[in-house]
Amino acid sequence: MDKQIFIDKVRQAQGKHNPVPMPTFDENDTVSTTATRGGAKAAFMRNFTANHGDVFESCDSLVEFLKSKGCKTGVADAKLSDLFGLEKHFEISREFDRQNNPDGYDFGISKASFAIGENGAIVFKDSDTADRLNTIAPWIHVAVVDSKSIVSTLPEGLAQTVDSPYAVYVTGPSKTTDVEGVLVEGVHGPGVQAVLIV
């Protein structure tokens, strides 16, 4: 259907109603005081953990965690410049081999663009990620979050989200309750979603 005809049909239909003024609202109208309490970082850690995400503040504890999960191999996103010594403990590829080895990585590690306290979300923008598959295909995924990049509220987060071709909020492991309402983690994406705060 022609674009103009389509839009005109909508305009004509809308004209049958009295115009309603656009409501004005303050950003704080939407912000949850309980979800944001304690500051950006504390709120992020609390809300991310509530969604079964794992939070690490030191590389040693992360290495120990990955070892306890039986990890031997990993894939690190090409845009992640520092591997935090993980390469000493695991065999790490710098490129996701989609063709030959899509299930061959015990864990993936990538740089998060920033994080949000209110909804406990880590944010991956295409501009900071070399390959989307690193974040979604391995069973364990680690996001490296710069503690200075954590914002407190969702409106603050939204204001710096939609400037890349693609961005995604991730608040924990991939999950479903589609079979008789039973919660199962690790549907398509990670069954373990961890964060390393640096």
Partner: peptide, 22 residues
């Protein structure tokens, strides 16, 4: 919808991607 504070994934798609697999 489900009594969650937020969904696990929220995607914002503005057009063709710039990452390797997109």
């Amino acid at each position: 919808a489900t009594g969650q504070h937020s969904t696990v994934y929220t995607d914002f798609v503005r057009g063709p991607g710039s990452a390797k697999n997109s």
